[in-house]
């Protein structure tokens, strides 16, 4: 540098004046990413009341598949999976929270539908659980099939795709039902337990975990019918494509890691791997992280601190006795499939 500080002053002033504009134009290119970095924390919308997905443990730490999904994004952005603030949302206020910018990403067992993607101003970034609507009944009721539910009272959360799926199913099968709609999940479940409803309906994953957490789970029967497709997805606001990429690829990175056999235990040894797929994933080769405006070791941090998708599953879902089923990797007969990370 040859110019004196004084000579550079006008340029400095000019830059200072343009600072907000410059930040937008030359920052990461993502308003959400800039906001997250500026705040030093990812704000993630979760349910906060669903075992296996998001529920605080005895230490007050949020546990579950959705909560760990939030942590993976924080690990990708900050290299620190703990820089997450969890916001508990109900089925009814979740979209408003996302639309208004109160949260950066919504990971709350939210079903991907056309209507939601087209009307709500949101984009679905990845399916962390392929689910479907099921019915739970008390064994004492003697019901064996959902076809026998004509005239039943059904406990269901309002504002969900479940409530629409049930209406469709009963209409298709020429049956009638009475809904009991309570937003608060605990209140709804207590209404079912007290016998106010004949059956409790929601995503079969949540029914399975609810059944697993009951003192006598033999008293409850999960009916065989799955009456709808409920791909539970990550959701972000429309209009911030770079942020969408980061969220979606944080999830794909976890799938890729599982596919390649990279786990939180062996990830440090894998840094020395010669497999180009693993090298690209862990940032020892190529510029995948930089392309996302992240640290090139973004996926290393995710796997190291949160684990791959299978580890997340084993920790959060498998312990509740729910089989992996269609949520297995595509190589093992499931639907979980990540595009090539290259």
């Amino acid at each position: 540098m040859t110019s004196s500080p004084l000579a550079r002053l006008p340029a400095v002033l000019l830059i200072a004046g343009l600072l907000p504009a410059a930040a937008a134009a030359q920052g990461s290119g993502s308003a959400t990413l800039d906001a997250v970095r500026g705040r030093g924390q990812l704000v993630c919308g979760v349910a906060g009341a669903v075992p296996g997905f998001s529920l605080p443990d005895s230490q007050g730490v949020m546990r579950g598949l959705d909560a760990d999904g939030c942590r993976a994004i924080a690990a990708a952005v900050f290299g620190d999976a703990n820089k997450v603030k969890f916001v508990n949302l109900s089925t009814e206020n979740r979209f408003t929270a996302l639309q208004s910018g109160e949260i950066d990403v919504l990971i709350r067992s939210t079903t991907w539908t056309l209507g939601r993607e087209a009307n709500l101003g949101g984009l679905f970034a990845g399916v962390n659980y392929y689910d479907g609507t099921g019915f739970l009944v008390k064994a004492a009721a003697g019901v064996k099939s959902a076809r026998e539910l004509d005239g039943a009272t059904i406990c269901v959360q309002p504002g969900t795709s479940t409530e629409l799926a049930i209406a469709d199913y009963f209409r298709n099968n020429n049956m009638k039902f009475t809904p009991l709609l309570i937003e608060n999940r605990a209140e709804l479940e207590s209404a079912f337990l007290s016998g106010r409803c004949d059956t409790y309906s929601t995503d079969s994953s949540a029914l399975a975990t609810f059944r697993a957490t009951q003192p006598k789970k033999e008293d409850f029967v999960l009916l065989p019918e799955i009456i709808s497709k409920e791909p539970l997805s990550y959701m972000v606001r429309k209009g911030d494509d770079k942020w969408f990429d980061i969220v979606r690829w944080s999830y794909f990175a976890q799938l890729t890691a599982e596919e390649e056999g990279v786990t939180s235990k062996n990830v440090d040894e894998q840094l020395a791997s010669t497999d180009p797929n693993i090298r690209r994933l862990l940032g020892t080769e190529g510029d995948m992280g930089k392309a996302l405006a992240l640290d090139n070791k973004w996926a290393y941090y995710i796997v190291k601190q949160v684990g791959n998708f299978g580890e997340m599953w084993d920790r959060d879902i498998a312990v509740l006795g729910v089989p992996r089923g269609i949520n297995n990797l595509w190589t093992k007969g499931g639907l979980q499939y990540a595009p090539p990370l290259r």
Partner: peptide, 23 residues
């Protein structure tokens, strides 16, 4: 009423705004 599952105007309107996204 929302708390105990009686479907008054607030309950139905909030379900509506949730299904349509038009808060």
């Amino acid at each position: 009423a929302v708390a105990i599952g009686y479907q008054d105007i607030v309950s139905i309107a909030s379900t509506t705004l949730n299904q349509t996204g038009q808060a």
